[in-house]
């Protein structure tokens, strides 16, 4: 008899709990369905239509994708993102590892240095971009003035089609690297001492210890850097928007900037949605490949 009572009560408690669960999660799910689910579904509808918001939507089948395959600017944006990532990712890893290693030594004022390096991370991209617009300027920019004062030639940072995207990659590295310094530093501090001791007993020198112990232990952080940078590279917008408008010769046209232009400059909502879909597919594939590549690398 008592057993039955507790069972019954437990069951009632469970029911109440379940009800409460639904109630608590309901606002989130409602919001999710309206501002995530609906746009996601609508993206799949929109990309098969031509729509300028003003006139009624018109079904065009695969025409948007047909155009996309012939659109030089779509491929240009992909290429630009590729250029950005090939510079941004390695540069970020090298710089972040370098400073993380420095900060991992016994020293005074670690917190101070760490905080200073981290500052660009929290400041708005608009601020950073306007700042670099001046730093990168050809005639009047601070960097070129310094180069000239040291007897060098001014560098056409944003003016040259070959250098413009690398310049943006350098700027993005400067902005984000503080975060990865912190992540790498945390990673370094969590490597157990005994691993190094064991390696030392095996006769490994400092370089070998770093290569075989430190680097593999930092692998999760590497994956984070690579994946976050990739997503960041595909969502570049305000940097080219302010610095170059996508030029010169479309050398800094980014995925989001091209979507923005098609949607809000030429009013091609359907085509922009198709572009968004294809870029999303590319991101997905790239991240998948990177995960496989970077993670298996650890074990080889």
């Amino acid at each position: 008899m008592p057993e039955r009572v507790t069972k019954n009560r437990r069951w009632r408690v469970r029911l109440r709990e379940a009800q409460q669960g639904y109630v608590l999660v309901a606002p989130y799910l409602l919001h999710l369905s309206v501002f995530f689910g609906y746009p996601l579904l609508f993206a799949f509808v929109l990309m098969f239509h031509r729509w300028d918001i003003v006139t009624p939507m018109e079904f065009v089948g695969l025409k948007n994708f047909w155009r996309l395959m012939r659109d030089d600017l779509f491929f240009r944006a992909l290429l630009n993102t590729g250029i950005f990532l090939t510079i941004h990712i390695p540069l970020q890893i090298v710089v972040a590892l370098f400073f993380a290693e420095l900060l991992n030594r016994p020293l005074k004022g670690r917190g101070f240095f760490r905080a200073a390096y981290f500052m660009p991370v929290v400041v708005s991209g608009v601020v950073i971009t306007i700042l670099f617009q001046q730093l990168f300027a050809f005639d009047t920019g601070l960097i070129n003035r310094m180069l000239q004062a040291l007897g060098g030639e001014p560098v056409p940072w944003l003016v040259s089609p070959a250098l413009a995207m690398p310049s943006i990659a350098i700027m993005a590295t400067w902005k984000n690297v503080g975060l990865y310094i912190v992540l790498f530093l945390a990673g370094l501090q969590h490597i157990p001492r005994h691993l190094y001791e064991a390696a030392e007993l095996d006769g490994a020198n400092a370089w070998q210890r770093w290569w075989h112990v430190t680097l593999p232990m930092l692998n999760p952080t590497m994956v984070t850097v690579v994946v976050l940078s990739t997503i960041g590279g595909f969502s570049l917008f305000i940097e080219p928007y302010i610095l170059t408008g996508g030029g010169p010769l479309n050398a800094t046209l980014s995925a989001v900037l091209y979507i923005y232009n098609q949607a809000f400059y030429f009013n091609h909502m359907g085509y922009a949605a198709a572009l968004g879909f294809c870029f999303a597919i590319v991101i997905f594939l790239v991240v998948l490949l990177q995960r496989r590549f970077v993670e298996t690398d650890t074990w080889s």
């Binding site: 995530f36 746009p39 996601l40 993206a43 995925a255 949607a263 968004g276 879909f277």
Partner: peptide, 16 residues
């Protein structure tokens, strides 16, 4: 939802 890049939702979310 974390796996869906925002650039896919940008246009439909705007039209919404």
């Amino acid at each position: 939802t974390l796996m869906i890049p925002f650039l896919l939702l940008l246009i439909p979310l705007y039209t919404l």
